[in-house]
């Protein structure tokens, strides 16, 4: 990956709240004590700054993820894997009808560098955009320090499986204490009896215990890899800070507790379904929808992705269906 520190970030001097204003193409981003403002040639948009930072955090951490990351129903990004669209109103019927929508495409490194700098400048000490609202201080107020350590957490990406020698390590009390909502989750590890010389083949770990120690919410990370089949479990609490628009079929397995998903059309935003998932439920999210989840108690969700680079094109050209199977 290109070093984004080498890309040019256009940022002004701090405003009277202490925050820099950022420019990306014809988009401008500004914040004050409570709000983030996005401006483009044909419009402006205001978001609560905590919601904006939580969304920007996911977009940056996931390298713009698969498909569309809607910050809300107006502003967001579309990943083209090498370059990224930044849009306002492009997936909002009213904006498009009024011809107030705006979209610009940027090299991946340019938009990533700008978003990283903005996130760092706008996140105050004590506010963790990855944390559940109960577990962090607020985003409000004039500029007050930073929280670079929290916003630059390394995303777990196992190459084979967590716990395999040389791969991602398991979590312990020293690095990841058990979350308050998962205090009852069994922490015992599997019994492993490897013959000498087969320690890297006879491997297992406690996935539920591992997830119970996650210090972030709504942040899928890779724990096992079968070619392009990626297990990306995550722990969820409160509301998914973005509305994810799929460019491929995505699968969910609810491992614990419950999440409600609001599902809307990817292009228009019109509601299509509400999906309630309880422990053991399995559901696909079609490739032509956007979805946002609500988790009243911290829950464990297995997000299952097919990371094939060919899928978006196959689906966009109609060579692969937008839904998972014929029933």
């Amino acid at each position: 990956m290109t070093d984004t520190a080498m890309t040019e970030v256009l940022a002004g001097e701090p405003n009277h709240h202490g925050y820099r204003t950022f420019q990306l193409g014809e988009f401008a981003f500004e914040r004050d004590e409570y709000f983030a403002y996005v401006r483009w040639p044909t419009g402006t948009h205001t978001m609560s700054v905590d919601a904006f930072l939580r969304a920007a955090q996911r977009d940056v951490a996931w390298n713009f993820f698969y498909g569309t990351v809607n910050f809300d129903n107006v502003v967001g990004t579309v990943n083209h894997y090498g370059n990224v669209d930044l849009f306002a109103g492009s997936f909002n019927e009213a904006y498009r009808k009024a011809e107030l929508d705006h979209l610009e495409n940027f090299p991946h490194e340019q938009i990533l560098g700008t978003f990283r700098s903005m996130l760092d400048d706008w996140t105050n000490e004590g506010f963790d955009p990855f944390a559940a609202p109960e577990e962090t201080r607020t985003a409000w107020g004039d500029k007050s320090g930073n929280n670079t350590e929290a916003i630059t957490r390394r995303r777990v990406t196992a190459s084979r499986m967590v716990g395999v020698p040389g791969d991602e390590p398991i979590r312990t009390d020293e690095t990841h204490p058990v979350n308050r909502m998962f205090a009852d989750v069994d922490q015992s590890q599997p019994e492993i009896y490897a013959e000498p010389g087969f320690e890297d083949q006879v491997c297992a770990f406690n996935l539920f215990g591992y997830l119970s120690r996650s210090d972030v919410t709504w942040n899928p990370s890779i724990v096992s890899v079968c070619k392009d089949s990626l297990y990306c479990p995550t722990t969820e609490e409160y509301i998914l800070p973005i509305i994810h628009g799929n460019d491929r079929v995505e699968w969910f397995v609810q491992l614990s507790d419950q999440i409600e998903w609001e599902v809307a059309d990817k292009v228009t935003g019109k509601l299509r379904a509400r999906v309630t998932m309880k422990a053991g439920d399995v559901a696909a999210m079609p490739a032509d929808i956007r979805h946002q989840g609500y988790s009243p108690k911290r829950s464990m969700l297995l997000v299952w992705e097919n990371g094939s680079a060919e899928l978006p094109e196959l689906i966009a050209t109609g060579k692969a269906p937008t839904y998972p199977v014929d029933i």
């Binding site: 609810q254 379904a273 999906v275 029933i327």
Partner: peptide, 17 residues
């Protein structure tokens, strides 16, 4: 749980337990 269809076909979600 289940799929509450508003303007869609529940089969598109392949929902099972």
């Amino acid at each position: 749980g289940g799929v509450e269809a508003i303007d869609d076909d529940p089969r598109h979600y392949a929902f099972s337990n």
